[in-house]
Amino acid sequence: MKRIFILALVASAPALMAQTAAPQGPAGAAPASSPATTAIVFSEKGANGLGDLPMGVHRIPDSNVVISGHQGGIGALFGPIGMLVQSSINAEAGTGKVRNVEDDLRFDVRAKAIEMTNTIMAGDQFRTAFTLTPQPGGRTMTVTPYVVLTFVKKTEDVRPYIVLKTKVAIGDDSGKAIKYFCCEGKALPLAGLTENNGARLKELLTAELDTAINVMLLDRSQPFTRSDEAKVATNGLLPFVGKPLKWRGFTLGRYKDYDLIEFRGGMMVFSGVNIVEPGALEITPVVKK
């Protein structure tokens, strides 16, 4: 069963070639400044079904929101939203009023990311490193934002994740992809997240997006030190995965009180920089034997 579970998270062969590990540097190396201003462009494409998502996810139509964690059994056929809507139909039969849960889960993550990046760029910290106006032949960072709502197994609780997939291109070089994942707070009941037109969900995603954008801009302007000696063992809930998983990664240090854990390699859909709030994962240094 473990082998089947892992395979379900592995991206397809074409995606393995496209998705690469984040740049690495020697232990203790100082962050290197970007040699030129980088233009930021936000993509409308959303998550790539071949390389960014595991099998069996449910996409909310006309949005960049996907649902995972439910795969297996009937959930893989209909998804939790389909079952929830059917449950609403059964409960409210005869009233003629079936709540459209999918509408409450929609979040225009691209529009919000553009708005928040404009606000952050108005300050001094990243003004010289980035611009929102692309220049012919210049450095361009394409950012693909999307949302992953991960159901926790055997519950109706959900962990909402913001994902920012980035690539910095220079001329004909399309660059390497680095993803940034952020989830804040404990898993919450789906019913609570969808109340009042999804007000609580939108509040959570907005806060996570602010954190993810700041970490992305920091790393893409002055890359965090990446050391093969900084290996850690983690245990807990990860993006797309509905139950605790043990996995090894590398610590990149901290952002405020968040741990920054990078899972390397393009095979797993949660590969990238995971922004981990205190207590969200068990993190243990790996000691060489």
Rank of each mutant, 00 (worst) to 15 (best):
A21F: 07
A233V: 03
I81C: 13
L245A: 10
G175S: 05
D108C: 02
T150H: 09
Y161R: 05
M216S: 08
S34L: 01
V163N: 05
V147R: 06
E195M: 11
D228V: 13
A230Q: 11
S88P: 00
P80A: 08
S12Q: 13
K289V: 07
P31L: 11
T128K: 10
L84I: 15
S68A: 15
G51Q: 12
L218E: 14
A230H: 07
I162F: 12
K202T: 06
T211G: 06
G175V: 08
I213P: 06
E102Y: 06
T251Y: 02
Q71W: 12
P278K: 15
A122C: 08
T284Y: 02
Y180I: 11
D157W: 10
I120K: 13
V287C: 09
G192S: 14
V286N: 01
E184W: 07
R139H: 08
Q71H: 09
M121R: 06
V85M: 14
A169L: 01
H70K: 13
R264W: 00
G73E: 14
G46H: 15
E156G: 10
I67K: 03
I89L: 15
Y146F: 14
F151Y: 10
I213D: 07
V85C: 03
R3K: 09
A30F: 04
D103G: 08
T166P: 01
L281W: 03
V147S: 04
M268I: 03
S68D: 15
I89S: 14
G279T: 13
A129W: 07
Q135T: 08
P23Q: 13
I283Y: 01
M268D: 01
P145F: 06
K167D: 03
I178C: 03
G96N: 03
Q135W: 01
E208W: 09
F250N: 15
K288Y: 13
F107S: 02
L50P: 00
A22R: 13
L237Y: 06
I162M: 08
H70I: 07
V158G: 02
R248P: 02
N100C: 00
K45G: 07
R3H: 07
N214I: 02
G46C: 12
M267G: 00
A91G: 05
F270G: 01
L237D: 03
G137R: 01
G137D: 12
V286Y: 09
G266I: 06
G249D: 07
E203K: 14
D172Q: 13
D259I: 10
M121C: 11
V66C: 14
G272I: 09
R106Y: 01
Y258T: 12
N197I: 00
E282T: 03
T225H: 06
A212H: 02
